[in-house]
């Protein structure tokens, strides 16, 4: 047997890579959604001085390549602040902020989609600010936001492949290793692509079901 052949152990390697990709994806998605939601709420309440900063930072994150952001965080910040940073830390920080920027825009338009009259009516009924946020704004904004969010998350799953460039051993990095060892790029990259494809499809499918469930409560029932 040559060292260049595929071995059964490669399957373990692929699963490991998939595990790293999925773990980072889930982790950064949760952090990103939380930060995005926080930004949208801060933006909604017009906290003095926060609006322009939030808009500027999220626009910069949305309008620059993720690869450059990764380089800035992984190479730039440690050199600038003289701290150590592992590839996984840099990837987590960058992907979380990136997801947050996209999620912020969705949550903001979700909140803005709610009629001013509803909030005024709730105020007239004597609901407090936090009650209005929890009981009136949140459920409707959630139903409104799920669809666009799924699209963003499918995209973010693909963006995670970029972290292989700064040395995280995710699925794409495993593909690189197998590619260099076996010199069979067609098989290797087709398999890697297929795994990403199936993951994206599963995510989109699950998202569709969540959306249907959330929309049920706010469905237009006719007059």
């Amino acid at each position: 047997m040559r060292y260049a052949d595929f071995t059964p152990y490669d399957i373990v390697l692929l699963l490991q890579g998939l595990g790293v990709t999925l773990a980072l994806f889930v982790g950064t998605t949760l952090i990103g959604l939380a930060i995005g939601l926080l930004l949208a709420v801060v933006h909604h309440y017009r906290v003095p001085g926060c609006r322009p900063v939030i808009v500027l930072v999220t626009e910069a994150l949305k309008n620059s390549p993720v690869l450059v952001q990764l380089f800035l965080v992984f190479f730039g910040i440690p050199a600038f602040l003289h701290i150590r940073m592992t590839p996984v830390e840099a990837a987590t920080l960058t992907l979380s902020l990136n997801t947050a920027a996209f999620a912020f825009v969705v949550f903001r338009s979700g909140i803005e989609s709610i009629d001013r009259d509803q909030i005024e009516a709730a105020q007239v009924f004597g609901l407090t600010r936090s009650q209005i946020l929890r009981l009136v704004i949140a459920p409707q904004a959630a139903a409104f936001s799920v669809g666009p969010l799924i699209g963003i998350l499918v995209n973010q799953l693909q963006v995670t492949s970029l972290i292989s460039v700064i040395g995280v051993f995710d699925l794409t990095k495993i593909g690189n290793i197998l590619n260099l060892r076996t010199l069979q790029p067609f098989i290797v990259w087709a398999v890697i692509g297929l795994i990403y494809y199936l993951a994206a499809k599963t995510l989109a499918h699950a998202g569709g079901r969540i959306e249907a469930a959330l929309r049920k409560s706010v469905k237009w029932g006719g007059i």
Binding site: V154, Q158, V159, T160, S161, L162, S164, V165, T172, G175, N176, N179, P185, F186, W189, A190, I192, G193, Y196, Y197, A200, K201
Partner: peptide, 21 residues
């Protein structure tokens, strides 16, 4: 469907390493 659901980096490597093959 395929090219929207596979990361661009993977597509790029597929072409870059695959075409000479």
């Amino acid at each position: 469907d395929v090219f929207r659901n596979v990361p661009f980096l993977v597509q790029l490597f597929f072409f870059f390493y695959g075409l000479p093959e």
